[in-house]
Simulated scan of single mutants.
Amino acid sequence: MLCVVCNITESKYRCPKCKTRYCSGPCYKEHVCTVCDHPGEVQEIDVSYPKLQDLLFPTDDTVLPQMLEKLKESTHLCSMLTNPHLRDILVQVDSSEKVEKHIQAAMMEPIFTQFVDVCLSIVDPQENDSDSSMD
């Protein structure tokens, strides 16, 4: 799909708020966000993290936002994200309209499965410990 701003280059990204497809930083800044009505402006949001009992539909697999925040702090994860192949896979999954299909394909890539394992070990370290004790 082409960038909705310049209509020249293939879109690689989506606005996190309105999901508009764009190709670059300049096009992102130029797009008119239908959600926040401010072109390309990222608004700071006051985030107070919910507790598990406050979530609408928690499951056994629900990961609390506090645990997801730990992903940002991982130097190992950050170093993995310097791999252009991994970033391309993540962009494909994120921008796909058929996410399940792209995740299945991505799971065939060793770099992606390693990335998933590192993410899981960060957000659920006890689960990871119990898996390794079964080996």
Rank of each mutant, 00 (worst) to 15 (best):
L71H: 11
Y28S: 04
D131W: 15
C6G: 02
E30W: 03
M134L: 13
H85Q: 14
D131T: 04
S24Y: 12
C6H: 05
V5D: 03
T20Q: 15
D117V: 00
E30C: 06
S95I: 11
R21F: 02
K17P: 00
D129V: 11
I45G: 09
K70N: 11
H102Y: 08
K51A: 15
V99F: 06
E109H: 06
K12R: 14
V116G: 12
N7Y: 05
L77E: 01
E44L: 10
G40K: 15
V93Q: 10
A106S: 08
K29G: 03
E44D: 09
L90T: 08
T34C: 07
M134F: 14
P125R: 09
L81F: 08
D94C: 15
T82H: 12
N128W: 11
P50A: 03
S48M: 06
P50M: 03
K101E: 10
D54P: 09
I111V: 15
V118W: 00
C23M: 03
V118G: 08
A106Y: 07
K12H: 05
R21I: 00
N83L: 02
M67G: 01
H76I: 13
Q126K: 12
H38T: 05
L56F: 10
Q66I: 06
E127A: 14
S130T: 12
P16Q: 13
Q53C: 09
L55I: 15
A106D: 06
L55Y: 13
G40W: 14
Q92I: 03
I89K: 02
G25Y: 04
P16S: 08
S48N: 07
Q43C: 12
D135C: 12
V93R: 01
P16E: 03
P16C: 07
L56M: 10
F57A: 13
L2P: 06
V116R: 10
H31W: 01
Q104H: 12
P26N: 02
T9R: 14
L64K: 05
T75G: 04
D131L: 15
C23W: 04
T82F: 12
C23G: 13
M108V: 05
K17N: 02
A106C: 05
P50L: 00
M108L: 11
P50F: 04
K101F: 00
P16T: 08
K72F: 15
K72Q: 10
E69A: 09
I111M: 10
T9A: 14
K19S: 13
S48Q: 11
P58G: 09
D60H: 07
A105W: 01
F57K: 13
N7R: 06
E97M: 09
M134I: 15
V91Y: 08
V47P: 01
H102D: 12
C36L: 05
E69K: 13
K70H: 12
D60P: 08
T75Y: 04
L68E: 13
D46K: 07
T113W: 03
K12F: 03
D117H: 02
L86P: 04
C23T: 05
V35P: 00
E97N: 03
L77S: 01
S79E: 07
E44K: 07
S133Y: 00
D54N: 15
L55H: 08
S11E: 04
T34F: 07
V118F: 00
D124G: 11
Q43G: 05
Y28F: 14
P26H: 06
V93K: 04
P39H: 15
E69M: 11
F115A: 08
S121W: 07
Y28A: 00
